[in-house]
Design a protein around this nucleic acid. Structure first.
Lengths: 340, 340
DNA sequence: GACTGGCACTCGCTACAGTCGAGTGCCAGA
DNA sequence: TCTGGCACTCGACTGTAGCGAGTGCCAGTC
């Protein structure tokens, strides 16, 4: 029941042709377009086996074959090598590199670039706060009882939050607070801060304690507990390529899923170093995305990972090309971040 | 050739029925469902006139009538009154009010609320920087030659930008810079700052001048010239309601337009006080949105306007209901902003 | 003069039958 | 083990026919 080399070649040919033409592929067309060295009849026999094993299926009798999710999986794992990028793509990536002024700018450029190169929906997670270190905390008095706290992370992310103090606080006290939190927190990972933040409250003078208590609880709440993840999205219009054949006629579930940040984070936010994750159709845990595939990876300066990025498209997707592009973009973004 | 009352009533009935059923409406069905007090034949004559005048049209001979963009326009201008909100809607809006911690939070909640209530695509512009006043400018040294400048506006918006200085600057000099820019700029409208910023450079000591020059050019460039407008979007999945009948079969142009911030800003960002703007189909200047209508208005604390919000949907839209909802949401958001 | 009922006509939609052809499974033979 | 041949399946397409919603027009009525 093992699949011999020719059967694998047949599967590969089916996947490639189907991805290219979007039409079920038959035995005759297959031998014409690929040098398989055997007759259509033989290919048919191979196809019968592949179908039995669940790698391909027939939309209906007397139609060609179409890869199943399982077929794509085998293709990705064993039958394809990563395509080298074209010079044009390489240039496009480099061109986008220059002139980014800002983390926001970098993320937006990246997500658009990714959408454009892969012609799919692109998703980029902002550097995760949980994986960032505090570079600076700024406290800006808005009124006597209100403070704007601005956190600048080493990844370039800036988050702010309004803090409603329990009572009025003098300007000099704000200065003290600022000094204290910076002394204690700068340089530490946000995910490691809870004990430090607690210590801050404990060590405060009685005068500062109430303010420090609210401040620290806000810090914990916004920056650590429900860690403010952010996401950028682009290329949704690419979903309409290939008419209504992909995604079985309705974009609705896909569009709904794309609006849920939580869902997207789950998909691209769980990146591991230097791996590219490919989720094909059913492998996906989100019901709305059963008709889609996701290719994602982590990015970050050097070999550390601060966030994820990836693309989403129909299961009928050019996996080798997409994987190559996603990896390349992630690497470039990493370099860009390392420069700062 | 003026339209008498009954003809207007017929038009109104056609619009209402078509919006409700999404099907061309015929003379017989019309007299059955509305108390017009005349026979189908009479209605047919009226329809013929309405068609001649360009308010309705027939998709094909022997089909019912469908309103044209011009018909909708007449309906909106003269035949509909703003629907009062249902208690449920009112409650929904109020419920969303409480618990917003942040400008970001407010904007996101608003856009989701709007999408949910109108069942259309919702767009909310962040308070425009051009219409905000500077509340505070913070300069945070990132390295000796790099400064993070954080601007906090009175509307709650916070923008940051990395500044690459021409040479190293001492910490005390940063303190001076900070004091100077705040003294000069706090309280002023961003759109009015260019001369002030120029003055800042002129009045600087020779020691500070190079740094101040770069700083001020960055300020001008990011905050004034290409005034960093931001936009939030929600409810794209609502585009798929009504199958493919709306938007003549393809969502692509719509989705493309929605990705262009510039386009959206043009649509909802040009708000005038206390007016609700309705753009119907062709009236729209963006080609991609010829099949869509936009209902938008301005919002802001009190009677001032700091940004725009609105929804986008098919021309076949419940205008009275949508207008009411958009207005109500804008008013509530304004109140919310006034509290801060 | 305005409205109405009646009538012939239009034309999209659906159902049905027939044809075509791509593609298959199977089998006997090399 | 592969191949050529053959019968079979079934979706896609075409053409025809009947149905019915809806129209425009006209003669008649109030």
């Amino acid at each position: 029941m093992g699949l011999d080399d020719r059967k694998l070649a047949v599967l590969r040919a089916i996947v490639e042709d189907y991805v290219a033409t979007q039409e079920p592929v038959g035995s005759k067309a297959l031998v014409e377009r690929h040098q398989l060295g055997v007759s259509p009849a033989t290919v048919r026999n191979d196809m019968a086996v592949l179908e039995e094993e669940g790698y391909i299926r027939q939309p209906h009798t007397s139609a060609g074959r179409v890869p199943t999710d399982r077929g794509y999986r085998l293709f990705v794992d064993r039958l394809s090598r990563v395509k080298p990028l074209s010079p044009a793509e390489r240039r496009a990536i480099e061109r986008f590199l220059v002139g980014a002024v800002d983390l926001d700018d970098v993320v937006h450029r990246t997500v658009r670039l990714l959408a454009q190169l892969t012609r799919q929906v692109a998703v980029v997670q902002y550097p995760s706060l949980a994986r960032s270190k505090v570079r600076h905390l700024e406290l800006v008095p808005i009124s006597t009882t209100r403070l704007m706290v601005v956190m600048i992370a080493d990844t370039g992310r800036v988050e702010q939050r309004l803090v409603e103090l329990p009572g009025p606080v003098a300007v000099e006290d704000v200065t003290d607070l600022r000094r204290l939190v910076n002394e204690k927190l700068v340089g530490s990972r946000l995910s490691d801060t809870p004990p430090l933040v607690q210590a801050l409250v404990d060590e405060s003078t009685p005068q500062l304690r109430p303010a420090m208590a609210t401040l620290s609880s806000v810090l914990l709440e916004t920056l650590v507990e429900r860690h403010e993840e952010r996401i950028a999205l682009a290329g949704t219009a690419n979903l309409t390529r290939g008419g209504l054949l992909d995604f079985q006629g309705s974009l609705r579930p896909i569009l709904e899923a794309l609006e849920e940040e939580v869902v997207l984070l789950k998909l691209i936010g769980e990146a591991e170093p230097s791996t590219t994750r490919v989720l094909i159709g059913d492998e996906n845990e989100i019901d709305n995305l059963r008709a889609a595939s996701i290719v994602s990876t982590g990015y970050g300066p050097g070999s550390t990972i601060v966030g994820g990025l990836g693309v989403l498209g129909p299961t009928r997707m050019d996996y080798p090309g997409t994987i190559a592009t996603v990896r390349a973009v992630a690497r470039y973004v990493g370099e860009l971040l390392a420069q700062n």
